[in-house]
């Protein structure tokens, strides 16, 4: 009995870390390859999550729809809507330098989340959307469904990896890295820097939207609490930095590794701490993750799996 418990703990661990791996791959396209500082991951994630939830749930008078569509349709809608949101943001913000882009993207993400909380007729506000289906719901029941969903998630991880890898190795990806490392030179070579950045941002946001949709289907219930910047934006950044930004394998490794640390510290704090501290254990874990990020930034900047071709550095006289 203990073993099956452990087994299904592992299954839910792998589902969650798979979704984080997708987010890391998406961020890696934007930051690792494109040098775009997106601090509003949670916003695009939330758009995708709500899009897929509304598309796939049965009709309800509590929120918009649902439209009762199959899950893949929901995920496509998630990608399209999050990509559109990304396009609108990129259209106006992509020229901004990194610090400003960070502020703008975090601001827009917060506005999106604010809209989600307040647009009760569309999203049912803070009460959330219930009854979100999983793919193949009619076929299997119970815990086997978890296994099937695990497979579904990791198929999408694999797809996102292949897409990212293709992008990375293509002339498009090379141009992107050239822009990241030396914008002036790329401009001088006649590259339309803004267009490349726009495309990068949109692709990344669309993938973030898919991750959002998957999260909605994983929990079968969606409320604004699932789109907390801490768990979505911040943790993904830590994962990518630790995994190795610029490297797609590193992005997946970071998603798995940091989620493993996050999950294991939960077990540890729950077992080691006196009962009156249990309620505060999540704060200890956040503290540890914050410190871990500092360690990564200072001593481990290239990450678990560093970028294959190191960035070209130029140094002035």
């Amino acid at each position: 009995m203990e073993w099956t418990g452990l087994f299904f703990y592992l299954v839910s661990f792998l589902i969650a870390s798979g979704i984080y791996a997708i987010l890391c791959l998406a961020l890696n396209i934007q930051w690792g390859m494109g040098g775009l500082f997106n601090a509003g991951i949670a916003g695009f994630f939330a758009v995708g999550a709500y899009a897929s939830a509304i598309m796939t749930t049965a009709p309800s008078d509590k929120h918009l729809g649902g439209f009762g569509m199959p899950v893949p349709v929901g995920l496509v809608a998630a990608a399209v809507l999050a990509g559109l949101a990304g396009w609108a943001v990129a259209k106006i913000c992509v020229r901004l330098k990194s610090d400003y882009l960070a502020m703008a993207s975090i601001g827009i993400a917060e506005i999106l989340r604010l809209v989600i909380v307040n647009a009760e007729r569309v999203t049912n506000g803070s009460l959330g959307i219930a009854g979100i289906p999983r793919p193949f719901d009619g076929w299997v029941q119970g815990r086997a469904a978890d296994l099937l969903f695990l497979g579904f998630v990791w198929v999408i991880v694999a797809a996102a990896y292949v897409v990212s890898q293709r992008l990375h190795d293509s002339p498009w990806g090379r141009t992107l890295r050239a822009i990241r490392d030396n914008e002036a030179a790329a401009r001088a070579a006649g590259k339309d820097v803004e267009r490349f950045r726009l495309q990068t941002f949109v692709i990344g946001c669309a993938i973030m939207g898919v991750a959002g949709g998957l999260t909605a289907h994983e929990f079968k219930f969606l409320s604004p609490a699932a789109t907390e910047p801490l768990m979505v934006t911040f943790l993904v950044w830590v994962m990518l930095m630790a995994g190795g930004s610029g490297n797609n394998k590193g992005a997946i490794a970071g998603g798995l590794g940091i989620w493993a640390i996050w999950s294991m510290t939960e077990i540890l704090t729950n077992q080691l701490l006196p009962p009156e501290w249990i309620t505060r254990s999540s704060y200890i874990r956040i503290l540890l993750i914050g410190l871990l990020l500092q360690f990564v930034l200072q001593k481990f900047r290239s990450g678990l799996i560093p970028e294959a071709s190191p960035p070209i550095r130029f140094k002035g006289d």
Partner: peptide
């Protein structure tokens, strides 16, 4: 990198 670090510091303070 310092910007990223400051996000982490924000969480350290808050936690």
């Amino acid at each position: 990198y310092t910007v990223i670090s400051s996000f982490g510091v924000a969480l350290i303070f808050r936690s």
